[in-house]
Write a protein that binds this DNA or RNA. Sequence first.
DNA 1: AATGAATGAGTGTTCATTCAT
DNA 2: AATGAATGAACACTCATTCAT
Lengths: 206, 206, 206, 206
Amino acid sequence: MEDTKRTKIVDAATKVFAEKGYHYATMSEIAKEAGMSTGLIYSYFENKLDILLSIIRIFWKKINRLNQDKFITVKDPLDKILIILQNFEDLLIKDEKALCQVKVLNEALPHIFMIKDKRLQEKRYEIILNNKELIDTIDEIITDGQKKGIFDDSLNPSVLRQVLCGTIERVIYGLFFKTYSGEDIGYDADDAHKAIVKLIEKFILK
Amino acid sequence: MEDTKRTKIVDAATKVFAEKGYHYATMSEIAKEAGMSTGLIYSYFENKLDILLSIIRIFWKKINRLNQDKFITVKDPLDKILIILQNFEDLLIKDEKALCQVKVLNEALPHIFMIKDKRLQEKRYEIILNNKELIDTIDEIITDGQKKGIFDDSLNPSVLRQVLCGTIERVIYGLFFKTYSGEDIGYDADDAHKAIVKLIEKFILK
Amino acid sequence: MEDTKRTKIVDAATKVFAEKGYHYATMSEIAKEAGMSTGLIYSYFENKLDILLSIIRIFWKKINRLNQDKFITVKDPLDKILIILQNFEDLLIKDEKALCQVKVLNEALPHIFMIKDKRLQEKRYEIILNNKELIDTIDEIITDGQKKGIFDDSLNPSVLRQVLCGTIERVIYGLFFKTYSGEDIGYDADDAHKAIVKLIEKFILK
Amino acid sequence: MEDTKRTKIVDAATKVFAEKGYHYATMSEIAKEAGMSTGLIYSYFENKLDILLSIIRIFWKKINRLNQDKFITVKDPLDKILIILQNFEDLLIKDEKALCQVKVLNEALPHIFMIKDKRLQEKRYEIILNNKELIDTIDEIITDGQKKGIFDDSLNPSVLRQVLCGTIERVIYGLFFKTYSGEDIGYDADDAHKAIVKLIEKFILK
DNA sequence: AATGAATGAGTGTTCATTCAT
DNA sequence: AATGAATGAACACTCATTCAT
């Protein structure tokens, strides 16, 4: 029950943050969207920033958990990269509601750096750790693929990862923009998927 | 003279916005950084948002002008793409001061959508036009390259462009982060350049 | 049974008000201290201010009743004054728990004046009456003592009473402070008693 | 000029705090009383509590300075005590505006203990020091008087000081109450003065 | 042209109070 | 009778913007 409320708030905030941007969103808008009063939000979260942090934290946790779950049975570097992609798509694209998380995630960085509240330091640290976990995971997979002679080894793993992540982020952000603005962006979820797979095949594979 | 002041403000704001994020930056910080009083800023800009808009507008204008200038003598699609990349690098990477524009550009989108001030509508429209101009330019180049049989034509131009732009944005953002946080990101400006060129060769070329 | 609950609330509130001050004390702290839920407090009291009022009202009532009870057999003005002192000490000093009432009584005045709630007007009036009763009692004793030639009659009764009450209040407040802060104040309950008795002998007696 | 503004705010706040009590007083009331906007107050004070602290700090500083100034030429313990009394009267009674400080000073204690803001810790410490300075000064005078055989030495200095201060506080508070409520309290400033002097003569002197 | 003191609208947050269970 | 989740009014505080000098 308590968890339902937290989820409601997180979902409402994700929507409002995505629509208006963190600072333009007000607590009463979030409360209204969540179907409750402003005060109640403060029973579940320390403050506004805490909600933003929670959105991000939950997302990275989910991604990391999904990845680790599937990596147990998969060993091939290419398959692992494809699994990471698939997990991103599962979490963001297949649930249209969740798509707006991309924008919130995109906007979050400056706010994470502005955290002064001591109560939030730990949560901030956790986010950084979770983020680092994904980065390290990808970098290890790439390094592994290069050692095994499967991946292109003329570039260092960090740049390869940046190219991959930048692509995924941008392509999915486009889908969010399409959904929420209604404007045509020239491609759909299927095109996006094919493009990233092709990027992996042509750019990352040897 | 007036132009010097405007430039000073734009430069100061770019720095402060990049360091703190648009909303955490205050007008008095910008004024201090620009070496003038808060009030004077309002002689050159309508309001805070107007400064942000100007930063973006100036950047897109410069990019478009640089592109068009060089496109006069260049006709090959691949060369054109490489010129666009080079222009980005000239504007952002080669001047360390300007590097922080990446972050401002990254953060700007939500604010552009929140413009209510009628005086800014025109400027907003101009930005969207400038942005669209670059997008259209790239899309045309890609379409042209595909027609000429030079570029991969299994993906539509919009997605190809997103992959390219997402990569450039992310890779350069990494360089900004490195410069301003001092942390190691595993690659430098040279690696970044090579990676993008390789992306073009392996992913965009047939 | 109902009375037990009321007493529990009053005792808990007295403690919390004394420790934190009326406004810094929250209803949930009082409820926790009283071992019940916040809601239940509202079955016994109109609101937060009502609890404060009750604490004060109960104290003045007790003092007045104790005084009147003992005055039946005592007629000498000096003895009467000493009885009032003894009653104060019985109610405050001898029960360490009750000592914190001094602080609550001290802080109460501004709140009594801010009562707007109509339901509390009557209670407020009662407090003022009870307070006035003690004042009048003391003033009458002093007047009587002056008439009988026992008390110094070079000062009017009101000022004499203020000196006496100010002394008692301050000296007992010191004891409260000592108990709750643990700091040394340079005197104990016994010193306090002797000082007040000496004040009566040297200052009020002729 | 800046000092005029600070003084205006301090005076306004003293009045409003005295009338309503610290917590019932709002910043906009203080601003209105001071003839300025809410925001401007924050150019001169950290926050609401800082104003309260300043009122108290200024008062204790003034008292201590006045005392030390006059103690240079006076050596007799009795004269010193009378000078302290006179200074209190000069600061509080002779300026009717300043009289309301008594109430603010009376109410301040719980708030001083609730200070969490780091920026105010130093100011808090200064107040405690100033307060201690007066206490120590009085205690030294009394000890000196007892050694010289002038003062009653059957009670320890701390209690004697409490009796004196409690009396002064209470008697002056009565005058404040009279002025601001318009009610008759049975004595005036002159009676108050005589009472305290008589207290010193009869109770403190041997 | 230039200043920065002054404004006040806007919002996050708290907490007394209510009420469904 | 008892709970504590839920409410929302109230207020401190910030900061973009203005304007007297």
